[in-house]
């Protein structure tokens, strides 16, 4: 394989993982916009999505297509339960308390997942075979990569439609701009928050499901994917949807090219290094509106 082929391969890998980061970043953004908190349980949504898919497809031999939707719905329900239970009933509504609470919930979910599935990495069969497809430039691409792109694009289009055209989507955007004003015009903010949690649960699950055939899955795959998705959200501009996509893709490419051309040992550090750089140089992110407020 010559150099240009290698580069092409890195770019394909980078775009794939970048698509995953973008979906995860979306999940962080949706909850951030509704509540102002960082939802660390997002990481567990990814792991759970992957593990549900594994259980259904591999252990119970359910049709992959049906498994996909059941897993997604399952994690969405868990997301909703998190909101209905602890988040809504917390006696203090301070942001700092709620952020800590999502950390606690994340530990509970991860611990439970470890009990249920053990600590082994497990594989999920690819959606449509493993035979690589040859590209024009001479590189190859595994069909699952195409699935990841296609599903990501579909998810993004659906999100765009949802937020621009549907009443619920508009209500969610209104709430993110000003909660009190939204409540005044009759939007049930509690319902919006509940929906946000279910929604980002589903998004996390999708990310976990589509990456599982490529990189295998386990009870804690979500931590690194989730935290890097979080870095992508910051890079794009926290709370900004177009930013999430851009941030995810840039981060994925940087990581893949960095690992391939510079050093694979520090692969996991690249995303967090970028996160620190963004915070120090342009904390509002690439697509963020104006400057983050300085005090």
């Amino acid at each position: 394989m010559d150099f240009s082929q290698q580069i092409a391969q890195y770019i394909v890998t980078g775009l794939t993982i970048g698509a995953i980061y973008a979906i995860v970043a979306m999940g962080f953004n949706i909850i951030h916009n509704a509540t102002g908190i960082v939802n660390f349980a997002q990481c567990e949504f990814i792991s759970l999505g992957g593990m549900f898919m594994y259980s259904l497809v591999v252990l119970f031999k359910v049709n992959p297509m049906i498994s996909f939707f059941i897993s997604m719905a399952g994690v969405a329900i868990i997301g909703a339960l998190i909101e209905i239970g602890p988040i809504r009933h917390a006696r203090s509504k301070e942001i700092i308390v709620l952020i800590f609470l999502t950390i606690g919930l994340s530990e509970v979910l991860r611990g439970t997942a470890q009990e249920v599935w053990g600590t082994d990495n497990v594989g999920v069969p690819a959606f449509s075979g493993e035979n690589p497809i040859h590209l024009l430039g001479g590189g190859t691409i595994v069909p699952q990569h195409i699935w990841v792109f296609a599903i990501t694009v579909l998810v993004m289009l659906m999100l765009h439609y949802f937020f621009k055209k549907t009443l619920m989507g508009k209500a969610m955007r209104a709430t993110s701009v000003n909660r009190r004003a939204a409540a005044l015009v009759g939007i049930s903010v509690n319902r919006i928050i509940l929906f946000s949690f279910a929604f980002s649960g589903a998004l996390g699950a999708v990310a976990g499901i589509i990456i599982a055939p490529i990189s295998t899955t386990s009870y804690d795959t979500g931590i690194m994917l989730g935290l890097k998705g979080f870095a992508a959200a910051i890079l794009g501009g926290y709370g900004n949807f177009a930013g999430a996509i851009l941030g995810g893709v840039i981060l994925g490419l940087l990581e893949s090219l960095g690992a391939g051309l510079i050093s694979s040992q520090y692969k996991d550090a690249i995303a967090f290094f970028v996160l620190l750089l963004v915070l120090f140089l342009k904390p509002a992110g690439i697509m963020g509106y104006g400057e983050a407020e300085r005090v």
């Binding site: 620190l276 120090f280 005090v295």
Partner: peptide, 21 residues
């Protein structure tokens, strides 16, 4: 210094990334 000059919870993000690095 850079993260605490900003309003909001930027320190949690910076320390998270720093800790993992």
């Amino acid at each position: 210094y850079p993260s605490l000059k900003l309003r909001g919870h930027y320190l949690v993000m910076a320390t998270l990334g720093f800790g993992i690095i």
